[in-house]
Simulated scan of single mutants.
Amino acid sequence: MKWLYENWFKSTIFLAIYVLIFLFLFLFQTNFSLFLIWLQFVIYLVHQFEEYVLPGGFLEFLNKELLGSAESDFPADKKFSFWINIPIIFVGYPVSAILSGYIDLSIGIWTAYFSIINAMSHVGMFLKHKYNPGFFISLFLNIPVGIYTIYYFVSQNLISLNSHIIGLIIGLLVQGFVMMLGFKVLKPTIKDN
Rank of each mutant, 00 (worst) to 15 (best):
K130L: 07
L66W: 02
A112Q: 12
L168P: 00
G124S: 15
L161V: 13
D192Y: 11
V42F: 03
S106E: 10
S155F: 10
F90N: 14
F61Q: 03
I143K: 08
V46W: 08
N31Y: 02
I150Y: 03
I166R: 10
A70W: 01
L99E: 07
L20Y: 14
Y18S: 13
N85V: 09
K187Q: 15
S69W: 06
Y102C: 04
G56T: 07
F90H: 10
L173S: 09
G101C: 05
F28V: 09
G68K: 01
T189W: 11
G92S: 06
F135G: 06
M125E: 13
I190K: 05
N118H: 11
Y5Q: 13
D73R: 14
E71A: 06
V42P: 08
L20S: 13
I107D: 05
L36N: 01
L27I: 14
I170P: 02
I13L: 15
S72A: 13
K130R: 15
W3P: 04
I150C: 00
G134H: 00
K128R: 13
W110Q: 15
Q175D: 11
L25A: 05
K191G: 14
L139I: 07
F26R: 07
K184C: 12
F90L: 12
V154I: 15
I159S: 11
F9L: 02
N118Y: 10
F74R: 00
S96V: 02
P87S: 01
P94H: 05
Y152W: 06
S115Y: 00
K10W: 12
P133A: 06
W8L: 06
L127Q: 08
